[in-house]
């Protein structure tokens, strides 16, 4: 009985420690192929400042900081989930066609500084502090406050 409780406690402690997520520095070569391809394509001239991998129990994610201050995040397959260029501009081509068209039409003078996608939607931040939301089929869903 007591041993059972003891092992239960250990299990809980171990699992929470695992949940806490561990950051680990990696080199560019350790990134998934797709992620390396993405960086080469859109940030050709820019070097990587540092990259790290965050492991959780069932998931892994990668984060790359580039020397120009941009931050790119990838999921475990190497697909990008977030491109954050707060101090410059998200390189052309990353923002999907339909969304780009919508922005050019409605916010002609604004630059996209961050784009984030997940399993539900796209979220974009413009340098004029406007935030936009699009569904996965790139249809405009609304402004975000």
């Amino acid at each position: 009985m007591k041993r059972f409780f003891l092992s239960l406690t250990c299990l809980i402690l171990v699992s929470t420690a695992a949940f806490a997520g561990k950051d680990k520095a990696i080199t560019v070569d350790q990134l998934p192929q797709t992620a390396r391809q993405f960086i080469k394509e859109y940030f050709a001239a820019i070097e990587v400042s540092y990259a790290k991998m965050e492991s959780e129990v069932f998931d892994k994610s990668y984060e790359v900081i580039l020397v120009n201050g941009c931050k790119v995040e990838f999921d475990k397959k190497g697909e990008w989930t977030d491109v954050d260029c707060k101090y410059s501009e998200v390189p052309a081509g990353i923002v999907p066609q339909k969304i780009q068209e919508f922005i050019t039409k409605n916010q002609p003078s604004a630059k996209v500084i961050e784009i984030d996608r997940d399993s539900r939607d796209y979220e974009l931040k413009l340098d004029n502090r406007v935030e936009l939301k699009f569904d996965l089929k790139e249809n405009f869903m609304g402004y975000d406050d």
């Binding site: 400042s49 020397v67 120009n68 201050g69 931050k71 410059s88």
Partner: peptide, 16 residues
């Protein structure tokens, strides 16, 4: 800490 660190690094790299 991580957020704070990232914020400073990206600013530093971007020359802000």
């Amino acid at each position: 800490l991580e957020d704070y660190s990232e914020h400073i690094i990206t600013r530093a790299l971007a020359g802000e």
